[in-house]
Structure formats: structure tokens, C-alpha cells
Amino acid sequence: MRQPEPEPQSFNRVLSSMCTEPHPDARAAAERFLATNPGDPATYEAVADLEAQAVEGLATLAAHPTPSDAAGYVTSGGTEANVQAVRSARNRHEGSDAEKGERDINVVAPESAHFSFHKAAELLGVELRTVPLDDDYRADPEAVAAAVDDATALVVGVAGSTEYGRVDPIPELGSIADEVGAGFHVDAAWGGFVLPFTDHAWSFADAPVDTLTIDPHKFGQAPVPAGGLLAREDAALDALAVDTPYLETRSQATLTGTRSGAGVAGAVAAIDALWPDGYREAAERAAENAEWLAGELADRGYDAVEPELPLVAADVPESEFRALRDAGWKVSRTGTGELRVVCMPHVTRAALRAFIDDLDRIRR
């Protein structure tokens, strides 16, 4: 018997996701390029040209010194970009010290670093050294400086952490990496489309950043999958290249082989439609919503973390959290159990008011 056509879930009560509804132009562009493969650029020339546009657009957001010449590609998401950043740094570090023979390579990252760095360490056979945060959930530069040594291939800074939306002291971390001859990577997968409209120092212009993760399918309002890996210099991508003898393009720096042109085309369409004014308006609206929600929670006696980027964490009891989930709200928790709400473009003030109304009903 034929089953009813399934419908995608509504975003109306989704408060925990770092993905959002794609811009209509991005949705249409993704559909047009569904069957193209950026992994074979000599065959699929149109989508290869689009990928160059996507990289230039992302590099512009991240203040690359020469966006039109920036190295990078559209990944499946932040996880792939972070894995590739570790792989590039490892390969470059091993090559520069080949005369010293086999030795352990390490990556130094704050405890707030995304779980993809744990995957990268396991896959690539490097040691991941995680260091404590300061009292405001940011990387502690002194702890980072104490953890690095001459076997450190990469130092990681986070620009928009997944649990608290915090921005690490990127210039200080970059200086530490530079002092020990390590690469420096900034994970701005979520924050990269918000940070250009703040006064935070996070980009290629602010520190000696070698590689940077920035995802169009998050606040960029592109369809999934559409992540991004950027590099200051071609050498970072050259360190990833492998031979592809049966393709017209004879080498490839990406992690996956076949990739969907949908993410590439969707990313370009979203950036064309929204940069800069549309993104600025969305970022300002999200920041106002986060401040409002944090204030409403604090007024009710909850210990709420003051938002830095549009993400709210608050110490809501487990029984109330479960009741909110039972009421249909898609909320999540931090590692220490706090309620976590991400104010993405689809999250409206009306939805947040309804959320607070349900919380008040649950508390009675």
C-alpha cells in the first residue's frame, strides 16, 4: 500500500539547531545543481566556477587579504572542514621536520572545541590536548601556552562555541601558535556569518590565521550540506592533495570525492541574496532575541549566561526541561545540563514568547 508522502519537520519550535530554513534563492539554486559534482571540476565546469565564487564570498566575510585568490572549498559541513584543517597542519608539520624522524604530533584546543576535533585526532593519529576555559567559557591563553611544544602542529581557537556562543581571544591564540611554529585554525562554523557585524577580533585580518571553518548552511541560510574551509595560502590545501589519475583534474584536496553541487550553488545564491545587509539584519534581530530571552529567563529566577553571540544558556531544572520537550519544543542541553537555545534566523520573537508562556505554565 502506498504510504503518505512524508513532510519535512516544521522549524516553528526548533530552538536548538544551528541550521535554519534556506533562503528561497538558495533552495532553488540547490535544486538546479543537484546532479552536478564539484569533485570532478573539469567535467562539471559550471559548478566549479560557482565553487570559486562561493570561496570568494566566504573569504570576503572572513576578511581574507585577497578574497579573489583565497584557497578553500565547500565542504559537507564544519566537521569535514575541521578534520581537513588538522590533516593539513599535520602533513605540513611532518614535512617540515622529516629529518627528525617519527614523533608524536599534537593539536592544542580549548575544552569548548567542537567534537569534530576528537574525531580528527582519532582518524589522523594525532594527540588532542584540550585545555581549560576561563570563567567566561573562553579559551585561557595561559593554559594554551603551557600546553604547546615543538610537536604542536595546530592551535585551535573557537569563534562562536556550540554550547555558549563564546569567542576565544583569537589574536592571543594566534600569537602563541606563531611563537612555536604551529598552524592556527579558527572554527567559526556557526559564528562566521554573525561576527562580521560585531567588534570581535576573529578573522584573517585580526590574527595569523592559517585555516578557518565557516558554514553557509548555518547562519548563512544555505541548504544542507554546505560547509566551508578557507586557507590563507594555497600551501595549506596543497598539503591535502592526492592524485586522481582517472579524472581530468589530476589531483584533489577535498576529503570526499563526489560532492553535491547543490550545496555549492545554494551557498552562492544565499550569499548573493543576503550579503551584507540581509545578514546584518538577521544578526541584529537574533542578538535582540537572545538578549530578550536571557532577560525573561533571568526575571524568572533562572541563572542565564549573558549572550555574546545569539545563543542563550540557562540553568533550567531537568523536570521543566523534559516538560518543554514534551510540549514539542526542540531544545537541547549543554554538557553540564543547562537549557540551550540558539536564536537562528527562523526563531521569531513570537515563537520565543510562546516558549516563555509554556515555561510559565509548566512552572505553575
Rank of each mutant, 00 (worst) to 15 (best):
M1R: 12
E7F: 04
R13T: 06
L15R: 04
L15P: 04
L15S: 06
S16N: 14
A29D: 11
R32G: 05
F33G: 15
P38A: 13
P41W: 00
T43V: 09
E45W: 02
A46H: 08
V47F: 06
A48C: 08
A48V: 04
D49M: 08
A52H: 15
V55S: 11
E56K: 12
A62Y: 02
H64I: 04
H64C: 10
S68G: 15
G78P: 13
N82G: 11
V86E: 15
R87C: 12
S88C: 07
R92T: 02
E94I: 08
G125W: 04
G125C: 13
V126Q: 08
P132C: 00
P132L: 01
A143L: 02
V144A: 07
A145R: 07
A145S: 15
A146P: 04
A146K: 13
A147R: 01
A147M: 01
D149F: 02
T152S: 10
V156Y: 01
G160N: 07
S161C: 11
G165I: 01
P171G: 12
E172D: 13
L173Y: 14
G181D: 10
H185A: 11
V186T: 05
G191H: 02
G192T: 07
V194Q: 09
L195K: 03
P196A: 10
P196K: 05
P196I: 08
P196M: 08
W202S: 15
S203E: 14
D206H: 09
A207H: 05
P216A: 09
F219K: 00
F219T: 03
G220T: 05
P223M: 07
D234M: 07
L240M: 08
L240R: 00
V242K: 12
V242S: 12
D243Y: 00
P245R: 11
R250Y: 03
A253F: 11
T254L: 04
G257N: 15
T258D: 14
G261Y: 13
G261N: 09
V268D: 13
D272N: 14
W275T: 15
G278T: 05
G278A: 08
R280K: 15
E281F: 00
E281G: 02
R285C: 01
R285W: 00
A287T: 12
N289M: 00
A294K: 00
A298D: 11
G301M: 10
V305S: 11
P307H: 02
P307I: 05
E308L: 07
P310H: 09
V312R: 01
V312S: 06
V312D: 07
E320K: 06
F321V: 08
A323W: 01
L324K: 03
L324C: 14
G328F: 02
S332N: 15
T336K: 06
R340F: 01
C343Q: 14
M344P: 06
P345E: 11
T348F: 01
T348N: 04
R353H: 13
D357G: 01
D357L: 04
L359F: 13
